[in-house]
Design a protein around this nucleic acid. Sequence first.
DNA 1: TTGCTTATTGGTCGCACACTCAATAGCATC
DNA 2: GATGCTATTGAGTGTGCGACCAATAAGCAA
Lengths: 250, 250
Amino acid sequence: MTSSVQRKRVRKSPEDRRAEIVGAAAEVALTEGLECITLRRIADQLAVRPGLISHYFPAVEDLVAEAFGSAATAELESLLPADPPDGSPLQRLTRFFARTTGPSYDDMSRLWLNARHLSRYRPVLRERVLGQEAGWRGRLGGVIAAGVEQGEFRTSDPELTAVRILVVIDGLAAHANTGLRNHPSAVTRLAAATAERELGLPDGALNPTEPTDAAAPTEPNDPAAPTDSANPTDSANPTAAPEPSAADRS
Amino acid sequence: MTSSVQRKRVRKSPEDRRAEIVGAAAEVALTEGLECITLRRIADQLAVRPGLISHYFPAVEDLVAEAFGSAATAELESLLPADPPDGSPLQRLTRFFARTTGPSYDDMSRLWLNARHLSRYRPVLRERVLGQEAGWRGRLGGVIAAGVEQGEFRTSDPELTAVRILVVIDGLAAHANTGLRNHPSAVTRLAAATAERELGLPDGALNPTEPTDAAAPTEPNDPAAPTDSANPTDSANPTAAPEPSAADRS
DNA sequence: TTGCTTATTGGTCGCACACTCAATAGCATC
DNA sequence: GATGCTATTGAGTGTGCGACCAATAAGCAA
C-alpha cells in the first residue's frame, strides 16, 4: 500500500512544469548519475506519472542533455560569475582552484566524467557537452585575458592556457570514482601549479590564503565511496539503434 | 531465419573457453564499450548460447572487470614492455608519448573513461581499475626511476612524477568522445611537455624523431565520431540493488 | 455557473537484460 | 564400442526500461 491513494492532480503551466522536471533531472544527474534519469525516477521525485515526463520530453535523451546542461551551467555560474566579476582575476582564479580541487566539487567531477562517457552513445548529449566545454573555456579564458590586460598574468594565448588548465582538471576529475581524495596534495595542486606556470606566476600564487577547501592539509580519506544511491545496470543502447529502435520503426 | 541451423556443439576445455570469453569481452570493451558486454552479445560473438557465458561468469560484473583488466594489461605491456626493456628510458618514454597521444590510442582512452565512470556503480570493476592504475603508475614510475639512475632524467620522486603524467593523459583521454582530435598539438603535447618539465628535460626532448603518430602536423579532423557500433541505453543499476535483485532474492 | 482547452493520468506494449536449471550431447577413457 | 563426466544447450522467470494513447479532470474564460 505504498502511496496508492495519491491522486490529487496539480495542474501547472507548461513552463513551470518543464523547469521543474529539468531541475529534478539535474539533481538526479549530480547525485546519482545521468543513467539514473529515467521516466519513472523523475516522475517519482515529482510525484507525477511517468507519462507526464514523456509528454514534456518525448525522447528521454533530450532530458538527459538538458539536465547536464542545466547543472553544468549553474556550476560555472557559481564558480566564475560573469555579471559582477567578483574580485580581481587573480582572486577569481584562486577561488576557482580552491573549489574545483576541493571535495565539494566531487559531484561535479563525477558528472563531467559521466557526461563525457555517455556522450559516446548519445549525440544530443555530446553536442551539449561540446557546448559546455566551449562555455567553460570561454569563461576561464575571459578571466585569464582580463588578468593579462591588468598585468596580473602573462600568457600569449589565454584561450589555449584555459584549455590546458581544463585538461588537467579533467584528469583529476577522472579519478572521482576511484579515490580522488587519496591523492597527495602534490597531485591535487597540479591544476593550480599548471596555471601558475602558464600564467607566469610564482609557485603558490594561486593558493588560497585561508585554508578554504582543499588547501593546506594532506588529508587522505574517503577511499572510494561513490554516491551510494543508485546503481544503474549496463545496457545504455546496446546495438546500433538501441532504444530509439521501437520508436524509430513506428 | 537468421542462422537457425547452427547447432553443432564444440566442447572446449574450461580454461580455453574461459580465455576465449574474456578475449571476446575485452574486444567488445575496446571497440563498443563495457556496457555492451552482455551475455547475449558475447555469446553471439562466440557462436554459443548465453547460458554458457553465465556458466563461466555467474555474475556479469565479474566478466566486465576481467575484460577491462585484460585489455588494460595487454595495452600496458605493449606500451611499456617490462621483460626486455626496449631501449633507453628516454627512448621508451618517447615512444610512450607518441602512442598515448596518437589516434591509435583513442580506443584505449575511451575504455579508461568508460571504466572510470562505470566504477561508480560496480565495485568489482572499481577494484580492477585501482589495480590497473597501480600497475601503470608502477611501470611508468619504474621507467622514470631507471632514467634517473642512468642520469637521463632528474626528479626527486619518480612515482609522483608518474602520477602527474598519468593525470594529464587522463585529462586528454576525457575528450575521446567529444573530438579529441580537434585539439591543437599545443594541447596534445601537454602530456609530453609535463613530463619534460618534471624530468628536467629540454622542451621537445620527448618528441618523436620520426613523425611517428601524433607528431608534427596540427591536423584537426574527426569532429566527434565515436565507435559507431554500439549505443547502450541508460540504466546501469538504477536503484540500490538493481539487477542482482532477482538473483539476490532467490 | 457552464464550457472548453489541455495538462495529466492510467494502462499497455515490446524490448533487452541477468539469471536459473533440467535436459542434452561431446569426448576422453576404459 | 560402450560408459561416464561435464561442457553446453534450450526454455523460462522476473525486472526495468522507453514509448504510445485514449480517457480524465483542473482551472481559466465566457
